[in-house]
Design a protein around this nucleic acid. Structure first.
Lengths: 206, 206
DNA sequence: CCAGCTGTGTTGACAACGTCAACATACAAC
DNA sequence: GTTGTATGTTGACGTTGTCAACACAGCTGG
């Protein structure tokens, strides 16, 4: 009963449902995802999804969790290619975070913002999100050791950094920041400003 | 036909709808707001709301806009009572922003996060949100003149500050920041860090 | 090779929802 | 008092999430 061995009537309906739901979300928003439409698109009946997900909410939570994993992958990729000697590394991760959100607005909205996600759904979702957070804490602690970043509670610093990029992404996605603004410049400005606030002030030099 | 003169069959159904919808949102989330439930609660029929709002979305937009006005009021109140000589004034506004969101989570979620709010809805909503933003830009410019804050594009700085407090509020509301964390301390930490990044570095003194 | 079990998918049904059209009524103005 | 308009009601339609009842596929043990 491994993932591989699933080849029943449909093949792998569970995975197909996740893919199709994600596609619908990116195309028509989360509101366009409907159990019946999913069935129609995949050539199964409207109740078929219920064999794989307790209800619509559970399906959306699974899609959201997959989104966090994709986001984590991208951040790890960027991190691997960034310079390791300076906090620029941290800033690039912040930039990539916002880029991911802007490229996948509906999916990103689903990852947060679901008010249907009661606290009981969080274990599944929280795990994926927590992994990203812990990665961030790690990087911060690294630069605390080198003396680049203030030696404060690294979790608090991570929350602040997360809040900044998440907030910026959210404002852009929801249209509060107009597209006439220089979005790329804004991303740079925000990541730099927050990082400046986290940095140790060096008394000498410009 | 002023607001005052509305005293038809129900009295002032339009206002009552806005109040009741806000109450339902704060109690059971935006998902619990239903045209039919609104009618039931107010003792009118299910279609009565349609005499005052084109559809459910329009009603929610109006509620959201009212939320921005309440938020703006609170920020102005705090601003009036804050010390005017230092950027502490700005920090307190940030704190108050996050507090408002945490105290009215469902309402705050509605104010942002509505994916149903297409761009056509924005004029109404945008006006209320823009007023808050412009106020923020004003305060920033004030401290740019006194030399406390870096002389960069004040709009970019305002977006960054907005992003930080909005992001923090959002993370708390969505449960990404666990209530076991010291939320008040986190609010202080975030507002201080961002403000530090916006500040002019003074070469002398500690 | 067959009996039966479990996993998977289908169909029928129900209540709730948003919304519209047709109708009714209250108030205001003349 | 007649008339017109703003407001509220009722009936209806299509859509949705979900459940129960059913059907079948493929394995498992004999």
């Amino acid at each position: 009963m491994t993932d591989q061995a699933r080849a029943y009537h449909h093949g792998d309906l569970r995975a197909a449902l996740l893919d199709e739901a994600a596609a619908m979300i990116d195309q028509g928003g989360a509101g366009s995802v409907t159990m019946r439409a999913l069935g129609r698109r995949l050539g199964v009946s409207r109740a078929a999804p219920y064999r794989h997900f307790a209800d619509k909410n559970a399906l959306l939570v699974a899609v959201a969790a997959a989104g966090f994993e994709r986001l984590g992958d991208r951040l790890r990729t960027i991190d691997a290619g960034a310079p390791r000697s300076s906090v620029e590394r941290l800033r690039r991760m912040g930039e990539e975070y916002v880029r991911f959100a802007i490229e996948n607005p509906a999916h990103y909205r689903l990852m947060y913002g679901r008010e249907a996600l009661t606290r009981e759904d969080l274990p599944e979702l929280g795990e994926a999100a927590t992994a990203i957070f812990e990665q961030l804490v790690d990087v911060i602690q690294t630069y605390q050791r080198t003396g680049s970043i203030k030696r404060q509670d690294p979790r608090a610093q991570a929350y602040t950094a997360w809040a900044a990029v998440h907030g910026l992404a959210s404002l852009v996605i929801e249209g509060q920041i107009h597209s006439t603004d220089d979005i790329d410049g804004l991303i740079r400005h925000t990541t730099r400003t927050v990082l400046d606030g986290m940095r140790v002030r060096r008394r000498r030099g410009a």
